[in-house]
Structures are given as C-alpha cells and as structure tokens.
Amino acid sequence: MSVLVVVECDGGEVKKSSLEVASYGSQVAQMLGTTATAVAVGEATEANLAKLGEQGITKVLHDAEPRLKDFVNGAYTKLIAAAAQKEDAKIIVLANSNIGASVGSRLSIRLQASIATNVVELPKTDGGSFTVKRGAFSGKAFADVTLAGDRKIIAVKKNSIEALHEAGKTAQVESFSAQLSDADFADAPKQVVMQDQAGGILLPEADLVVSGGRGMKGPENWNLIEDLAKALGAATACSKPVSDVDWRPHHEHVGQTGITVSPNLYIACGISGAIQHLAGVNSSKVIVVINKDPEAPFFKAADYGIVGDVFDVLPKLTQAVKELN
C-alpha cells in the first residue's frame, strides 16, 4: 500500500500547486508509515520530475504518451486509476484545480473511493477515523469531513500547504504505460487557448494579487492596477461588478460566483467588500484594502488599510515598490 500523488505539469515544469500536493502526499505517507509515488500528467521533463524528491516523493510514474500533454478527462482518469492499481494506493492526492477535481470525481466512482475536495490541512487519523478539513460555503466556513472506506481521494486547495524543499533528494522516474486507446481521448481538446498574461502570472497560481473594483471608475484606469502588479510580480483580479460590465475578463472575477483565491497577499483597490467578494478572498494570508470610504466593510476583513483615493495611493505604492527593489 502507498500514497499516490498526481502532479500537473506545464511546459516541462511541475506546477507550484502540484509541489504542494506532492508535499501533502509525502507527509500523509509518513503518517501512515509508507512511501509516496507520483504520477505525472501534462508536459513534463524527466529532470524536473526527479526533483520531486525534494517534496518527499520516492518514485514518479511517467507515461510518455504525447496526447497527455493537454487535459483529457477520460485519459487522465484511466492513467491515474492504472497507477493507483499498480501501486496499491489507498490514498490519492490531487490539486483542487479544474483538472484535479474533475479527474478526482470520476476516479472516486471507478475506484469506489470516498473523496474530499478543497482540502486545506493534513488529515487527522485519531481513533481509526480519517478526517480532513475543507473549505465550504464558498470561503465563508470550513467543514471537518470524515472519509469512509479503505480508499480515499483528497484534492488539496492551492496555497494551503507549505511545499517541502529537501535540497538534493531525487525521485526515481519510471516509465509507465496505462495502455491508453483512442476511446480514452473522446474529450480531447480540438484546440487549447491560453490567456494572454501580460506579466506571465496566472491568477489561480499567484502568490500576490492586486485587485480592482468599481472604485477604479473605468477600464481605462487599470494601468494603475497593472503597474503595481507588475512591480510586485503579482496577478491582477477584479470584483464581480467590474467583470459584469466587461471592464475586465470574467476569469479575473474573484468572489463567491467567480474564483476563490488564497494568495499570500491580496490588495483590494476601490472594492467595498460585499460579503460575496469577501468569500472569495478571505483565505488570503494578508489582505490590504485601499478605499476612500472609511466605512467600507472590507476594512473589517483587512490586515492593513489605507483610507484614501486609489488614484492618488496606487502610484505611490508602485513607486515605493520600485524603490525597495
């Protein structure tokens, strides 16, 4: 028996969220007195997969089938199920990404496993039960969930687990074939379109986020947000009203019906802090609020605040970051 972790790769590299997943899996393996094996999906180089040793992974299974480069639900599910079988995995850990959670839900049926998504902490295993803490009510609460059965699947929320870095340790990369056939690629993409990211920082993976609301007054003022984001190396985001009126694309919309982010730093500019928006950001480690209205509810959820005009404050912040660097 072992722990199987699913690592998502892109452009040859293991995604940051998957380094966290690998670290989670190896710690669970340690708790259970076993080892953690990874199975790679997406485009990966052997050298980068071997480096998963730094996250405590012993072995990495790598299927070199070229069609696995893009996300295909059917094929990924079959690949991971085959790896789970080979390794006799009782626990499977994935990222709580669109890819990880989609595959996880199918796997839970195929492997007759219990599943928890959006998990934020290592499991508790006292008294024979297996309990994980997960986000619920769109960031407004947490739930401790007990997983039944002897096979369990855990999808780990980004930025909730510190990635391990044990320099110099390497994992053994083993080639592996799940014997995939054309039928497994029924939902293969005809085309993949990646967003044009000015600074190259993707919002779901970002450690730092600068976000704007209606207080920015119009899309023509977004350069102020972008300048600060660029200076910090941050991703940009927005509130729902802003994406509703198409000032910004919907994939930047953070909140209860947009995406939930949990960066180390979230800077909210001209966002009042409606309860639906707070739900999407309140697991951020540090929240900064800039708003000219001292009564804006967002200040109650903030660590740092500036009561002032965003048009005056943002250039000052950008300048200060440049000076600091």
């Binding site: 928890a116 407004k140 739930a143 401790d144 660590d303 740092y304 605040g305």
Partner: peptide, 20 residues
C-alpha cells in the same frame, strides 16, 4: 453516503486593521 461532516467551523476573525 461515503463522507460525513463531523463539524463545521467559521474562519478565524482578523485581528483588526492597521491603518496607514
């Protein structure tokens, strides 16, 4: 069912905002 909620909890409250 295969899972059960043992307990719900609310997120920890912020300590209060530091204004600059």
């Amino acid at each position: 069912a295969r899972t059960e909620v043992a307990a719900f909890a609310l997120p920890p409250q912020k300590q209060g905002v530091k204004l600059i």
